[in-house]
Amino acid sequence: MLNAIVPLVVDGLANAALIFFVAVGLTLVFSVLRILNVAHGSFYSIGAYVAATIGLWLVSSGLNPWLSFPALLLAAALVAALMGPLIERTLIHWTYGKGEAVQILVTFGLFLILEDLQRIVFGVRSIYADTPMALLGVSEIGGIIYLNYQLLLIGLAVVVLIGLRLFIRHTRYGKLISAVVEDREVSEALGINTRRIFMLAFTLGVFLAALGGALATPTTGVAPGLGAETMVLAFAVAAIAGLGQVEGAAVAAVIVGIARVLAIYYFPALDAVAPYLVMLAVLVIWPYGLFGSTSTRRI
């Protein structure tokens, strides 16, 4: 029995880790900017493409293959630094304080642009760059073989969750972000440059999504359509948690991850719909999500 459950949980958690990176970025951007960014999933797939491209280049150039680990991080940082401030300043900026319809139209437009841009730059073929996973090998625990890379993903998600909480609670920018989340106007009147906070939060959101994508490449590779698929999953996670909840996003990601893996193991036909069935069940009972509420805003 245990032999069946443990691998399932590891699979589910590894899956959850990747979704968590995207969903927590989505929820962060929503909390601070009050924008539901429909294009958020594209940063995941762009992170994946950039990481895969760098990874393949590393292999072909004959450099030390272990460099492919920092390269994953570098890919996410590159995507965030190049796209975060640019997109926030030129596009997202105009939707602040506008109705949801405008925000969704603008970010959906952005999503379409980014999808086509990826096809132009990276082509339409799938790319695989699994050096990091091959390098780490496998572990045998209790007669079951685990991919060490999956264990690394779970560990990294935990590190990011704790790191994000410490950042928000204890650093200058983290505290300024909390203040802006709770009361944008008073924050501004107390001397906080909210424009800068918006740009920072958006860029951090892009980084987290791109990091998720970069970390996913060694396991799943990257192909067109990944952005849309990820986006819908991240929305499901955010809806289950209640938008604006960092720890909630982690719990919801675990629920969705496990649900997906359960479906794959026992009801393969339900694989694609499992996350939404969970979402449906949660929203029927808790309309604002597991941790969401209508009144308090916090992060």
């Binding site: 200058r172 505290k175 909390s178 107390l190 001397g191």
Partner: peptide, 21 residues
């Protein structure tokens, strides 16, 4: 009033100092 509810009283007082570096 509009205090930041999850900050302590002192953190609320120090918020402008933090913002203005």
């Amino acid at each position: 009033r509009r205090l930041i509810s999850e900050f302590s009283v002192e953190e609320n007082l120090l918020l402008p100092a933090l913002a203005m570096k």
